[in-house]
């Protein structure tokens, strides 16, 4: 109710109609050839790689949930897993231009978005930025096992 907004009955009571602009539906029509102007070879390939990483990650969880096993590695995961197999292009495309200062919030089905966004940021950051964050997070608790690699199980 800011007083500066005067509501004029003459204007408000005028007859007329609301016009909507057309809403674009699937209008993208470029070919890879066209897009060569916008993407380097590495970028084209990285898009593919990111989709594959998400797909494999989700396939693995699917196997674990259904067969309690993935490529010979057995595990039982009693908790939830809402997978996005099939949706990888959406996640990777959504995240492609985003850096760490861009925030994403998601849903119950967001493993793919976490990975896509993380991969996009990793690609944009330099080594020291990455190392600083990884070393600092929970004092390196998440990083250490990854660095050490696999020891005896």
């Amino acid at each position: 109710m800011p007083k500066i907004e005067f509501i004029d009955p003459k204007v408000e009571r005028q007859s007329g109609e609301i016009k909507l602009d057309p809403i674009p539906v699937n209008q993208y029509s470029k070919s890879i050839e066209d897009e060569k102007l916008n993407f380097t070879k590495d970028e084209f390939i990285r898009i593919y790689r990111d989709m594959v990483i998400i797909r494999e990650f989700e396939n693995m969880i699917n196997d674990i949930k259904i067969k309690s096993e993935y490529n010979g590695i057995a595990y039982n995961h009693p908790g939830p897993a809402h997978l996005s197999i099939g949706q990888e292009a959406s996640a990777v495309g959504m995240a492609y231009h985003l850096d760490a200062e861009d925030y994403i919030f998601g849903s119950h089905r967001s493993h793919g978005e976490i990975l896509a966004k993380g991969l996009s940021v990793i690609n944009k950051w330099n080594d020291s930025q990455l190392m600083e964050v990884m070393k600092g997070y929970w004092d390196g608790a998440t990083l250490r096992p990854v660095e050490k690699g696999i020891r005896a199980r």
Binding site: N26, Y28, K30, I32, E35, F39, I47, M51, Q87, E88, A89, S90, V92, G93, M94, Y96, H97
Partner: peptide, 10 residues
């Protein structure tokens, strides 16, 4: 957007 095409989404 056709979210089945990563380039369309990008």
């Amino acid at each position: 957007v056709d979210g089945y095409n990563p380039l369309a989404m990008i």
